[in-house]
Structure formats: structure tokens, C-alpha cells
Design a protein around this nucleic acid. Structure first.
Lengths: 124, 124
DNA sequence: TATTGACTTTGAGTTAACTCCAAGTTGTAA
DNA sequence: TTACAACTTGGAGTTAACTCAAAGTCAATA
């Protein structure tokens, strides 16, 4: 799969894909004899994970660390498990904050809907 | 309430509070005769909202727009309601992505827990 | 009232995460 | 076999959101 096809599949720019590879968010991608990226199944799986975790606010730095540990082999299993648990906690905490904001928003939106009938907000 | 007290109450730096005021994430804060910030109830309510919405990933730019509309008065009620609904949708979408990442993480963590018993990952 | 610490502003600097550019290479279609 | 789009690298530039520094002002205490 060419870089272009991966871009289109995941709606991400080629620059970002190359950046991820350069800094180590994903391991080095398979290349053709001429040096052009030719994404294999496993390369794509790494891309998919990277996008998924970035979308959940996981820092690039953390993904780099995970890939680094992964490449060091089985001796880093504990470290990787801890890293994933830490990431999990961060996401759970972030989600709580999102819920609080949603509550606040829903309250405000409700008040605006009343206001839209009268043309005025009674307070705020 | 002094800037320091507000900082401590919301675990945010004075620089960030001043920055929020400077760029318009919150309206101008009440001052003493000497020009020193003296946060009143309403000032604090704005701070609280700003922090809450920023924590949910709402861009500073959007908060600035809301404050600007708010200051223009009742004629902007529709615009403000739309802005809040847009913000709400963004948060709902972000939460979905967080859930997908959580699923992936839970799967991986589960596999690592098995691996930790055997000392090896069977695949990945 | 003098000192000390917290406050003020303006503007510059930092960080994370891309995003763009220039100059050169690869691969395909005519 | 040449033209041309799509690829490559290394490095510089951008954006959002702070964060810091310098130089000066305010206010509580000794």
C-alpha cells in the first residue's frame, strides 16, 4: 500500500505519516527496492493504533516510548503493560472531564432554548 | 478574591489566568482602585467555565467567540446557542474516539496480563 | 516610612504536534 | 526514453496554548 493510499484510508496527511515514522511513533515502514514506502499489514496496524491513541489525546512522546520498548523485546513486557495502564487512566480521567463539560453545556443549551422563545436570557 | 487564591482554588497558574483575560477567554476581571484583580462571584464563574470547557478540549478561540457574543447582548442569543451546540457535538465525537481507544487499550492490557504470566507475548 | 513580596503590563520565548519547502529520486505512461 | 506525477529527505516554519522575563506599581508589615 502506498503512502497515498494510507493517507486516504485514514484521512491523515502524508507529512504526518512520515513524521510519525521519523520520530518513532510507528516503527520503520517497509520500503520498495527504490526506497519508497510500501505499507504492509503490520505497518498499517501500527498506523491505525497510532491514530486511534492520538485521537484519544495520548501524547506522541508516550507512543514513541511504547514503540521503543516494543523493539527491545520481551524483557520490556512489564514496562509496556504499565505504560498502557497509565494511558488508560489518563483517558478515563479525560472522559470524566468531558462528562462534566457536557453536563454544563446541556444545562446552558437548555436555558438558551427557553431564551430563544422569549428573546431574552433571564440571567447568567 | 486575589489571583493567587483563584490559582490555588482551580490549580491553574496566574499567567494562564491573566492570559485568559488578555485574549478574551473570560471578560475583564473586577479590579481594586490600585488596578489589582479582585475576582467577584461572576468573574469566578467565568473562570470555572473556561477551565471546564478547556479541559474538554474546547479551543480557546471558541471561548473567545462566546464571550464576544455574550458581550454584544441579547441579539446574539441564537449565535451563542449554535456555538454551544457545536461545542457539544465536538465533545460527543471526541468521547466516541476515547471509547474506541479504551477498547483497544483494554484488549492490549488483557493480552499483556496473560503475557506477564508466561513471560512472553504470543503475538503482536 | 521603608522594605518586602505580590501584584501589574508588554512582549518575547517555549512546547507539542504537526506542516511546509526545496532539491533531488523513482516509477509509469506515451 | 522522455516527461511527469508521486515519491524521497532534511530542515525550517507554523499554530495553539500557554509560560516566562523585565521593569515597574501596590499593599501589608516591621
Amino acid at each position: 500500500m502506498t503512502i497515498k493510499e494510507v493517507c486516504e484510508k485514514y484521512d491523515i496527511t502524508a507529512d504526518t505519516l512520515r513524521y510519525y515514522e521519523r520520530v518513532g511513533v510507528i516503527p520503520n515502514v517497509t520500503r520498495t527496492a527504490g526506497g519508497i514506502r510500501d505499507y504492509q499489514e503490520t505497518d498499517i496496524a501500527w498506523v491505525e493504533n497510532a491514530i486511534c491513541f492520538r485521537d484519544a489525546g495520548m501524547p506522541v512522546e508516550m507512543l514513541i516510548e511504547y514503540v521503543k520498548l516494543f523493539q527491545e523485546g520481551d524483557s520490556t513486557i512489564d514496562a509496556r503493560a504499565n505504560l498502557l495502564k497509565e494511558a488508560r487512566e489518563a483517558i478515563v480521567e479525560a472522559k470524566k472531564k468531558y462528562d462534566i463539560a457536557l453536563e454544563k453545556l446541556d444545562y446552558k443549551i437548555g436555558r438558551y432554548e427557553i431564551a430563544q422563545k422569549t428573546g431574552k436570557l433571564t440571567w447568567e
